[in-house]
Nucleic acid binder design. Structure first.
Lengths: 340, 340
DNA sequence: TATATCTACGCAAAGGTTTGCGCAACCGCA
DNA sequence: TGCGGTTGCGCAAACCTTTGCGTAGATATA
C-alpha cells in the first residue's frame, strides 16, 4: 500500500503544463478551451503514468464520498443477498460503492452502524431495517440525509421507498388456499412493529372477511422476529389452542420454514394434513421439502430500483420522495394441496 | 447531506485556541503537554458542537482509508454471509469498514472489482475468490497490497490465509460412510482450479486408498462451479455411467443439494438408496429434506480471524504471512444411513 | 543573575483535488 | 494602428487534517 501514487502534479510536470490543466482535461469539463494537442499529450501521459484520481483529495474537495450505506437486519436471511446484489450492481454502474451493515435485528446495533455510516460521510442510505414508527429514520431525514427504504416502509413520514404490494400478495395466497378448499386458515404473523408484518396481517383479515370468513383470533399468532424459531413457536401455540385448521399462511418464508418444523413435531405432514404458504420466494425456497409455495417478489430488481432512487436523490434537487411499488406473484409449489 | 460539518477550526475558535491544539487533544497524542484545563474546555466544546473528524481530510493526510475490500464469488451462497459478518464485526471493532464485492464467479468481474477497490484505496483485501493459480492475487501482493485469503488458498505464493483442513474434513466424511458399510462411494468434485475442489478430491482418493479401496474413475465427476445445477449434472453423469454406488461425498453443500435432485430424478431416495455428505455446513443445511450430513467449519470465526490477520498486516511491519488453519467437524444428520 | 530546561501552545507545511479568476497572446475588424 | 473578443492556459484559494518545529513564558539550576 505504500506505493506512491502518481498525482496530477506528476502528469503536469511530465507534460510541462499546470496541474489545473491536467485536471480539466481528465475531467472533460465543458466551457474550458484546451487545444487538442495538449489534451492528447496529457491523456497519453496520464495513461502512461497510470494516473488515478486520489479519492480522499477528491472527496475532500467536492464533499462527496460516492458511497452509499446499506443496512440489512440479517444478512443470513437469503432474501437479502439478491437485494444487495441489485443495489451494488446499479451503484457500481454510476461509480458508487456500498458500505454494507448488518444490524442483527438489534436497534442499538442499528444506531451504531448508522453513526458509522454518517461518520463515513455516505452520500445516501438504503435501509432494509425500517420499523413502522422509526425515529432513527426520521432523524436521518431531518438531518438532510438521502434515505431510501427497501422492502419495509415507515408511517407518518415522507420517505422514498421501494416495496411490494403486501395486500395483493397475501390476497393471492389466501385465494389460492380457498380454491383448494381450505376454510380454517391460520396466520403466522410477522412482527407488528414492522410494516410487512402489520400489512400482511391486515391483508389476511381483510381477504378472509371479503370471502365471508370471519377470521378466528385463536388461529393467528404473532412472531417477534422473522426467524424459523419464531415461526415454529407461533404455529405450535396455535396447535396448542386446540382449534382445528388445515392451512397456514406465514408472513414470510423463514416463518414458513418454522411452520414445517411445528407440523412435523405434531406428527402431521405438509401438505397432506396442513398446507403452508410463505412470502418472498427467497433463494432455496424451492429446495426444501416440500418445496415452498410462496409469493415471489423481484428482489434483485428492487435492489436496483432502490439504488436508482438514492442516486437521483443524491444528484437531483430533492422533489417529492419516490414511492415505488413492485408487484408480487404467486408461485405454486409443493407445500399446498387440496384440503385433506 | 449539505449540512456544514463542524471542523477543528470551529472548535478552536470557540475555545480561543489554535486548531492544532484541538487536534492534539482529541487524538490524545502522547508527548504533547496540554493543560487539563484547556483540554477539558476543548473536549466539552467538541462534544457540544458535535465535532466528527472529516474522514476525507483525515485519510488524505494519513494516506489510509480505514477500509478493507472483501470479495466473495457468490453472495447468494449461504456460506458467505456468516463469514462476512465475522469480518465486519472484527473490522468495526477496530474502526474499519468493509467494502463488499460480489464477483458472480466471473474473472472479469473480479478484475473490475479489484480495480474499484484499489481505486478506493482500501488498506487491505480479503478474498474468498482465489484460484489455485491466481495471477490477479500475485499482482496485488507484488504491488504491496495486504491480502488475506479466506476459505480458498493459492499455490506457489506466500500469502496470508485462513482455511480449513480439507483433508481432515473429507477423511471424516469418508470414514463415516465406511463405518455405515458403504464401499462403492462416488465423489462429486468441485472445480479443480479452486483449492477446495482440488484438495478435497485429492483427499478423497487418498482416504479411499488408505482403506484399501481403489477409487473408481467412473465414480468421480467434476463440476465447473459450486452450484446446485452443477451438482445435479455431475451426479447424473455418474448414474449414467451405469456403475453402482451407494454413497456420494460432495465437495460442498450446494453440490450435495444438486445430488438430492439427481437422486430423486432417478426415482431413488436419500438416504435409503444413496447416502450423501456435503461440506461447509452452511445455514439451512439442516432444513433440507433430508437434513444434510456435512462437514462443519466455523464460518463466522474464520471471518473474524481473516479480519484480524489483515489488520495486523496493515498495522505492523509485514513479517511472514500468517497461515491459519481451522479444524472441521463432522455433523451427522439425515442424509447418511447404513448401506441399503 | 545568567543560563538551561520545561511547559503549553501556535505556526505553517503538506497531502491532492477542483475551480473562479486572471492574464497573456492572438485574431479580426475598423 | 488601435481595440474588443477569443482562445488557451496558469495562479492560488479552499477543502480539513496531522505534525515537525518554533517560541514565549515559567521554573529550575548553577
Amino acid at each position: 500500500m505504500a506505493r506512491a501514487r502518481t498525482t496530477l502534479r506528476d502528469v503536469a510536470q511530465k507534460c510541462g503544463v499546470h496541474l489545473s490543466t491536467v485536471s480539466r482535461v481528465l475531467n472533460r469539463k465543458e466551457g474550458y478551451a484546451i487545444s487538442e494537442e495538449v489534451a492528447d499529450k496529457i491523456r497519453k501521459a496520464a495513461a502512461e503514468l497510470g494516473y488515478k484520481t486520489n479519492p480522499f483529495a477528491y472527496s475532500l474537495r467536492v464533499n462527496r464520498s460516492f458511497t452509499v450505506g446499506v443496512l440489512v437486519p440479517d444478512l443470513s436471511n437469503p432474501v437479502f443477498p439478491p437485494i444487495i446484489r441489485g443495489i451494488e450492481h446499479r451503484l457500481a454502474h454510476s461509480g458508487y460503492t456500498a458500505f454494507l451493515g448488518d444490524t442483527d435485528n438489534k436497534v442499538e446495533e442499528e444506531h451504531r452502524i448508522i453513526e458509522r455510516m454518517k461518520g463515513r460521510q455516505t452520500d445516501g442510505l438504503i435501509l432494509a431495517t425500517a420499523h413502522r414508527s422509526d425515529d432513527l429514520i426520521k432523524t436521518c431525514i431531518a438531518e438532510g440525509y438521502h434515505v431510501v427504504l427497501i422492502n419495509r416502509s415507515v408511517e407518518d413520514t415522507a420517505v422514498a421507498s421501494v416495496i411490494n404490494d403486501d395486500a395483493a400478495g397475501i390476497e393471492m395466497a389466501v385465494r389460492h388456499l380457498l380454491e383448494l378448499g381450505h376454510r380454517q386458515i391460520a396466520h403466522v404473523a410477522g412482527p407488528q412493529e414492522i410494516s410487512t408484518g402489520y400489512q400482511r396481517y391486515l391483508a389476511f383479515l381483510d381477504v378472509m372477511r371479503k370471502q365471508g370468513l370471519e377470521p378466528d383470533e385463536e388461529l393467528v399468532a404473532f412472531c417477534h422476529a422473522y426467524s424459523e424459531d419464531e415461526g415454529k413457536l407461533a404455529l405450535t401455540r396455535i396447535f396448542e389452542s386446540g382449534k382445528r385448521f388445515t392451512a397456514v399462511v406465514a408472513a414470510n418464508d423463514l416463518l414458513a420454514l418454522g411452520c414445517y418444523d411445528a407440523i412435523e413435531q405434531q406428527g402431521l405432514t405438509c401438505p397432506d394434513d396442513i398446507s403452508v404458504t410463505g412470502y418472498n420466494d427467497m433463494p432455496f425456497a424451492n429446495k426444501f421439502k416440500p418445496p415452498l409455495t410462496t409469493i415471489h417478489i423481484p428482489l434483485y430488481q428492487m435492489g436496483e430500483r432502490a439504488a436508482e432512487a438514492v442516486l437521483t436523490m443524491i444528484q437531483g434537487p430533492l422533489s417529492q420522495p419516490q414511492k415505488i411499488t413492485v408487484h408480487p406473484e404467486l408461485v405454486l409449489r409443493g407445500s399446498t394441496g387440496p384440503r385433506g
